[in-house]
Amino acid sequence: MSIKQLCSELLNKKWETEDLLFLIMCVVIASIFVTPILGIPIGVLAYYFLFNEEEN
């Protein structure tokens, strides 16, 4: 999966409150272990691979 596909899937996703809370939680936890500059993209990737349910 390319970065463009990942970005387009996340931008076109219908976001609910629960999804946003899990995304914020992943970013905060990732930022605790690495610097916030790296924590944000790592947290978004962690959310995508752990909590994103594809509807195919």
Results as ranks from 00 to 15, higher is better:
residue 1 M to Q: 11
residue 2 S to H: 13
residue 2 S to Q: 13
residue 2 S to Y: 12
residue 2 S to A: 11
residue 3 I to G: 11
residue 3 I to C: 13
residue 3 I to L: 12
residue 3 I to N: 10
residue 4 K to I: 10
residue 4 K to M: 07
residue 5 Q to M: 05
residue 6 L to Y: 13
residue 6 L to V: 12
residue 7 C to N: 11
residue 8 S to Y: 04
residue 8 S to G: 00
residue 8 S to P: 01
residue 8 S to T: 04
residue 8 S to D: 05
residue 9 E to N: 03
residue 9 E to P: 00
residue 9 E to L: 03
residue 9 E to R: 06
residue 9 E to V: 02
residue 9 E to Y: 01
residue 10 L to R: 05
residue 11 L to K: 04
residue 11 L to R: 06
residue 11 L to A: 02
residue 13 K to R: 14
residue 13 K to E: 10
residue 14 K to Y: 10
residue 15 W to M: 04
residue 16 E to H: 15
residue 16 E to Y: 15
residue 17 T to Y: 13
residue 17 T to S: 09
residue 17 T to P: 03
residue 17 T to M: 12
residue 17 T to D: 11
residue 18 E to Y: 10
residue 18 E to N: 08
residue 18 E to S: 08
residue 19 D to L: 11
residue 20 L to A: 02
residue 20 L to W: 05
residue 20 L to E: 00
residue 21 L to K: 14
residue 23 L to A: 00
residue 23 L to N: 00
residue 24 I to P: 03
residue 24 I to R: 09
residue 24 I to D: 07
residue 25 M to V: 08
residue 26 C to G: 00
residue 26 C to S: 00
residue 27 V to A: 03
residue 27 V to I: 07
residue 27 V to N: 04
residue 28 V to R: 09
residue 28 V to W: 10
residue 28 V to L: 08
residue 29 I to E: 08
residue 29 I to P: 01
residue 29 I to W: 09
residue 29 I to N: 06
residue 30 A to D: 10
residue 30 A to R: 09
residue 31 S to H: 02
residue 32 I to S: 14
residue 32 I to C: 13
residue 32 I to T: 15
residue 33 F to V: 06
residue 33 F to N: 09
residue 33 F to G: 03
residue 34 V to A: 06
residue 34 V to I: 07
residue 34 V to Q: 06
residue 35 T to L: 13
residue 35 T to Q: 15
residue 36 P to E: 06
residue 36 P to S: 05
residue 36 P to Y: 07
residue 37 I to Y: 08
residue 37 I to A: 04
residue 37 I to K: 09
residue 38 L to K: 12
residue 38 L to M: 14
residue 39 G to S: 14
residue 39 G to D: 15
residue 39 G to W: 15
residue 39 G to R: 15
residue 40 I to W: 14
residue 40 I to C: 14
residue 41 P to R: 11
residue 41 P to W: 08
residue 41 P to S: 10
residue 41 P to A: 05
residue 42 I to S: 06
residue 42 I to H: 04
residue 42 I to R: 03
residue 42 I to G: 02
residue 43 G to M: 00
residue 43 G to P: 00
residue 44 V to M: 15
residue 45 L to Q: 07
residue 45 L to W: 10
residue 46 A to D: 07
residue 47 Y to V: 05
residue 47 Y to R: 09
residue 47 Y to T: 07
residue 47 Y to W: 14
residue 48 Y to K: 13
residue 48 Y to G: 08
residue 48 Y to E: 12
residue 49 F to K: 01
residue 49 F to Q: 01
residue 49 F to W: 01
residue 50 L to R: 15
residue 50 L to W: 15
residue 50 L to A: 15
residue 51 F to G: 03
residue 51 F to E: 05
residue 51 F to W: 08
residue 52 N to C: 00
residue 53 E to F: 11
residue 54 E to G: 02
residue 54 E to L: 01
residue 55 E to N: 02
residue 55 E to C: 01
residue 55 E to P: 01
residue 55 E to R: 04
residue 56 N to L: 00
residue 56 N to I: 00
residue 56 N to C: 00
residue 56 N to M: 01
